[in-house]
Design a binder for these strands. Structure first.
Lengths: 345, 345
DNA sequence: TATTAAAATACAATCGATTGTATTTTAATA
DNA sequence: TATTAAAATACAATCGATTGTATTTTAATA
């Protein structure tokens, strides 16, 4: 095979001009005469020339590449977020490298090193469930590579985040349950080292307080929020000496798991037991009864996060270097929680 | 900020040795004395040195990067496949660049150019619904960059594919419907320029033939297989002068759309109408009744495809340059199609 | 100790594009 | 036509790492 790449030097020597002129022509510089440009462009097409970004990037020390770290690509929320990131990045001429931590801190660390070695221009990250310290981010800071947290952010000073208002969304969700005559509300929570789950829990607690419903420690059951946790949690919950009639889940998956099991043991939803989930994954509209849930658009969050990051990359100094953007959520009321037909009191 | 990168030259000059020795030491070459290696390694850690892959890649003309092109990242099957690809690639030390064509040929073309410019070592591609000619792949071939189709492959000679046996899977699915006393079976198909949908259609037709059920052109309704197409297709179907009692859908999403509407108009599933989908997306196990569907593991397909590609990259010549791997599928029987309790006759 | 082979290290070119500076060409004006 | 400014192009260094070859150092042997 003629594996040899066509370079600007090939074009230059064929046309008998200097490679710097070819480079400038291909970058449409004003320093090259129109006539020469045309000649160069024509020849470059003829030879099938394609700029070598490696060389170009090396020289310019800019890669037009964004690194993205998510816990798990296949989780619907994240795949939506990635889609949003790719969409926005593509428009801005950026390429996207995707890595999944698989909820492992060690892997997250090694991914960051790999992204550093590849000299990405910026990083979007949603941290793993295992991540409890943030020293592995030091390399990014040191090298002055901007990064933006999305969804699973963490509480360290001077960083940028694209998040939702978990506290408020949770508060509203629980308020909705209370509004639907729930008197004893449980909460299936996630790992408490993650701010999002901490805040959802806080919102839950705040709503109970506001409406003078006693808060019970035992009704808050933490897990890693997989479908099987839903069943396990329900079983645990049913052993407790409370007549639980409402449940706020920190995500949809665990809620679906819970619903499936509750239906199995013939507990009526929502009559006996009202449920609200979180995320509005596609399963939530498919299950019966439909799952009331907090709608958070992964796509939107991805768009906004990518935009913010690209902004930080382009205006390194102009912009203040930390900022938190809150993407709106709304509660989608489906049947799983509607125990009264009248409007809100 | 001290934005200056630490290079092998910094290490070299500090230690008073040549940068080539530093380079060799960091690559653990046998040409460097153990003592020197230790000294270099220590210093490199002290200075926070991190190899610049751009420079290294440029020199070696190898990037350890795989390009992945999918129609839509957020489609469950594809996000699973991407997860599988990332997993396998990560293990082998490769990085993954993800791009989505959004079903647009033009975008697919531009993505390929961008991947070429970034000198990826190989490409995994699942073509868009719009892709009807394959000239945009010529650049890959010309530059001798290996590529592997997965899922949505195309019928061109001498290429490598990781696919499922769509014909067989569809055949079995329809056979299953027939086995469940369906006499008049419709098929919601996808764009016929895609081999997968063509083959699913062929499998459908072959099963009908085999069991002497008349094939009716009008009962094959093609669409882009979105959820709303499910409803639209059902409406179209119901205007036809046939008492349709079975439906084989080319994917789960359109099947769910159909089911939702059928339930809305009080057609009983599976009693009046048996349905089989394709892909085993999570919604299929959540809807009621559960959707019988062909289980195809995106994760597995991703794993296998990445493996095959990396193999092609590493053993350019040793291996024959085209090969098709078929990943197994199985029919998951759920309630949407079970109209008899006895075992298969 | 002198000789020689092997081990370790240095030198220098290279990957392909970019960019500041120097030189040449062209066009404008006296 | 001579002068000068502007436009166009060439020269040369550079981004950071790698690698074939040359040289130096070390160790082994006579």
């Amino acid at each position: 095979m003629d594996n040899k790449e066509v370079t600007i030097h090939d074009i230059a020597s064929i046309l008998g001009i200097d490679s710097s002129t070819v480079s400038r022509a291909l970058n449409d510089s004003s320093r090259v005469a129109k006539k020469t440009k045309d000649k160069i462009l024509e020849k470059s097409i003829e030879l099938g020339y394609q700029r070598n970004h490696l060389a170009s990037n090396l020289r310019k020390s800019k890669t037009f590449t964004l690194g993205v770290i998510v816990p798990r690509i296949s989780r619907q929320f994240f795949s939506n977020a990635i889609a949003g990131i790719e969409e926005t990045a593509f428009k801005a001429g950026y390429t996207v490298v995707i890595c999944q931590s698989l909820e492992s801190f060690e892997r997250e660390e090694s991914i960051i090193n790999s992204l550093l070695a590849n000299r990405v221009d910026g990083v979007l990250i949603s941290i793993s469930m295992e991540t409890k310290n943030y020293e592995h981010l030091a390399g990014l800071k040191q090298r002055n590579i901007p990064y933006v947290f999305f969804d699973r952010h963490c509480k360290i000073p001077e960083n940028s985040n694209v998040v939702i208002d978990d506290f408020k969304a949770a508060y509203k969700a629980v308020e909705h349950l209370i509004d639907n005559n729930c008197k004893e509300i449980a909460h299936f929570s996630g790992p408490q080292n993650l701010e999002i789950y901490k805040n959802r829990f806080k919102g839950y607690k705040a709503a109970l307080e506001k409406y003078n419903i006693p808060f019970r420690e035992e009704l808050v059951i933490s897990s890693s929020l997989m479908e099987n946790n839903g069943k396990e949690n329900v079983i645990k919950m049913l052993t407790l000496p409370y007549k639980v009639d409402g449940l706020f889940c920190a995500n949809d998956v665990v809620a679906i798991g819970a619903m499936k099991y509750l239906k199995e043991i013939n507990i009526k939803i929502p009559e006996d037991f009202a449920i609200v989930g979180f995320s509005n994954e596609s399963i939530s509209s498919v299950i019966e009864p439909g799952l009331t849930t907090v709608n958070q658009s992964g796509l939107k969050i991805g768009n906004v996060a990518a935009n913010l990051l690209i902004d930080k990359i382009s205006n390194e100094s102009k912009r203040k270097n930390h900022e938190t953007i809150i993407v709106k959520t709304n509660l989608i009321e489906r049947k799983s929680s509607l125990r009264k037909s009248d409007i809100k009191s």
